[in-house]
Design a protein around this nucleic acid. Sequence first.
DNA 1: TGATGGTGCGAAAACGATTTAGGGTGTTTC
DNA 2: GAAACACCCTAAATCGTTTTCGCACCATCA
Lengths: 338, 338
Amino acid sequence: MANIKDIAAMCGFSVSTVSKALNGYTDVSHETKKKVMKAAEECGYLPNSMARALKTNRTHNLGVLFTDEAQSGLKQEYFASVLDAFKVEAELHSYDITFISHNLNINGRQMSYLEHCKYRNFDGVCIACVDFQQQEVLDLINSGLPVVTIDHVFDNHISINSANVEGMGDLVKYIYGMGHRKIAYVHGKKSAVTEQRVTSFCREMRDVGLKVPPEYLVLSAYHDIQATKKSVQQLINLPNRPTCIIMPDDYAALGGIEAIESAGFRIPEDISIAGYDGISLSQMLRPRLTTLKQDTDRMGHEAARRLIEQIESPMTTLVQNLTIKGSLIPGNSVARIK
Amino acid sequence: MANIKDIAAMCGFSVSTVSKALNGYTDVSHETKKKVMKAAEECGYLPNSMARALKTNRTHNLGVLFTDEAQSGLKQEYFASVLDAFKVEAELHSYDITFISHNLNINGRQMSYLEHCKYRNFDGVCIACVDFQQQEVLDLINSGLPVVTIDHVFDNHISINSANVEGMGDLVKYIYGMGHRKIAYVHGKKSAVTEQRVTSFCREMRDVGLKVPPEYLVLSAYHDIQATKKSVQQLINLPNRPTCIIMPDDYAALGGIEAIESAGFRIPEDISIAGYDGISLSQMLRPRLTTLKQDTDRMGHEAARRLIEQIESPMTTLVQNLTIKGSLIPGNSVARIK
DNA sequence: TGATGGTGCGAAAACGATTTAGGGTGTTTC
DNA sequence: GAAACACCCTAAATCGTTTTCGCACCATCA
């Protein structure tokens, strides 16, 4: 592989001049710049990213942490979509993307997330879909590296958030508008997102003048069909059965659907059900799931854009927490009641 | 950040000795090795991967190309699963994973896939889910870099393949065993995988003594619900309507389901349908989809394992094309006919 | 005693780039 | 005519490692 020295030899300039010519410095004449470019083209020159990174301390490589406890971040369409959009935007700015892990070992010891990032010299990091309580994750966030978090706000760090409060509000309003008065919410495990949604659910219910019996608020889990199936069975067996059940997410809604149908009820005639996320699956089900579609595309793009902005102009970038609105997809899993 | 020089200063040895101590060379006494390790531990030393890579020409970083035309490799569960398993296995061997793209630009020009790999100095490359006809992809494969391809065989290159011939054979046998005699196959666009499946479909049909009317073999597309919907509508309107339709994949089966149901037929009582892949969606549908589950987990693991083996001992690694068997999931979208 | 061999360590040259400080022209300015 | 100033270019240091080669020391052996 040709290097900068070869080019220098080819066109009779010094290494430094070649480097400058290739990097758009102004103190090199138009003439020589052209000669250098031509030589570089001819021998198929590609800079060595390692050497460059070693010298400049910039890798043009971003670390992404998209791993939940089940090691399946990629298998959840919501996160896969965000990552996909993040990737597209990053590439647009000539950044690469590498997965962060803590399974690498170096000198016999396993690295932490942060150590991995330092080892690889990532210019910045995007964190999503992870347990934000983990010390290791907190260490990474507070490391001083440019960071953007998805769906979790930290002081002095940029974050991109799905508008859970508005989203859940809209969902409840819609369901109320369809005539439902007994609305239950099977929610996911404790997290920032869950808190926002639960709070919003309760407030919205109060605002439309409805009481939420404590048994209508069921702690279940995200993306866990078995768990939500049980939770919904519980709700169905209540003496005061709800007419509509909001699920933690679209995928988990499948557990609810199963519970309802195998108990001999029809959706939505007997019991209505709503999801959250708006993944493609939701619109493939029959009946089509009523859900709140999160704008994963915009979230991923904004995350990358702001992270890179922060990397490239840290002084002028203001730390903010962006909230991105989703949109209600009516579907037909929520019946109109009179 | 502490570097090797700092450690040398800390414990009074030379840089070379420290390096050797950390890398398990034998010409350094146990005593000093311990001292060096201790010092390294104390100051939280992490090697600089760039410097190391620059010197050794090994990055311990693998490039992955998982991008179909629709830029949505990650959104297809089949490929996301393979990638996930690939990642786990790679990490086990202390390799990182970076996405390959051709959108990066360097010195004003866009890089090709191959250029990107050279620029980043990937030790090896895994290619899947891509149009294997593209010149750019072929260039990458023939570049001399260690390569493993998923679901496509190239001379002198390792590949991991889903057992499409056996898979399709099993599927047809099962359907035939359920009593069907009029079996149609809506297949995906031309590719190695498609050819294997179509060939196997035809052979198996012949082997069980059935003729395949040409109109029972419909060219459609993978992962494209609109396309498969149309194809199935076509089949339904045939004077000699099939009793069972095999779809390109589970996701695309949704188009078939839609077509069948909106034509007023019931699944499986009136028309049976089968998918391919065995993604989680398939088992969430009602009726549960009869499908052939591909062993994505094993595929991803083997791909990483063999790629790394090839990287680390190129002489002793034999080039082979591994075929990984899937398993039939009966589901209940295929009815028993007498 | 002198040759031999092993052991433990260090000096120094790479790897391929960037970047600072300065040198040599030729032209302008007073 | 000297000083000042552009302009274009180069030498050399540097980033943090790895790895070759050689040196010094000590023990062993004939």
